[in-house]
Amino acid sequence: MTIYNLTNFTSAAVANKILGAMQDAIKTGLAQYVPNRNGRSWLRVDIKRDAHGRLYFQFLTDTMQEVGHHLLKAALFHWSREDEREFSGLHAELYRLPQHPLDTILDAQEAERARKETSWVGRVRNWFRDHYSPAGPDFA
């Protein structure tokens, strides 16, 4: 079993993969996986909600080790200034979200589905009401 430490997170290549996973997690609302050099997933980046309802990133390795504290140290002391800013900015962006990104996406999809259904079904219903109901023109 591998125990991960700070040195696993200090390279620029790892920083870029983790930042990309964080961005994708915010865009999709789904957990993202960071592959190693061999293409095997070793880090899961997910969005969770704490007991107070605030959103936060969870970083779990393939051994179920939570490594957010290692990532914070790496970002502050080993990553480039730009990568550190992006890391902090993504945390801030997540913190400001009113709801989980997946909930936002699902709500938008439901609203679009309802809009399409209402527009088509509503037109059909109105046509039948206007043409075949006692209040419609055919029964006046």
Rank of each mutant, 00 (worst) to 15 (best):
L97P: 12
S119M: 12
I105W: 01
I105G: 00
D103S: 05
L94N: 06
K116F: 07
D107L: 10
T118R: 09
R115Y: 10
A111W: 07
I105C: 12
A108K: 06
E112M: 12
V121A: 08
V121P: 00
E112F: 05
A108N: 12
L94W: 01
T118E: 04
A108Y: 04
D103H: 03
Q99F: 15
A92G: 00
P98R: 14
R115W: 13
Y95Q: 13
A92H: 09
E112G: 15
Y95D: 14
S119Y: 07
R113Y: 08
R115P: 03
D103V: 14
R115G: 08
D107G: 08
T118S: 09
L97F: 02
L94E: 05
A111P: 05
Q99K: 14
E117Y: 06
E117I: 08
D103M: 11
A92N: 09
Y95L: 05
I105P: 02
T104W: 06
E117H: 05
R113H: 14
A114C: 07
E110S: 11
L97Q: 10
D107V: 04
E93V: 00
E93M: 04
V121E: 02
P101E: 06
A114F: 05
H100W: 00
I105M: 04
R115C: 03
L97D: 11
W120P: 02
A92C: 04
E93Y: 04
Q99R: 15
A111S: 12
V121H: 05
L97V: 02
Q109V: 01
T104R: 14
D103I: 03
A114D: 11
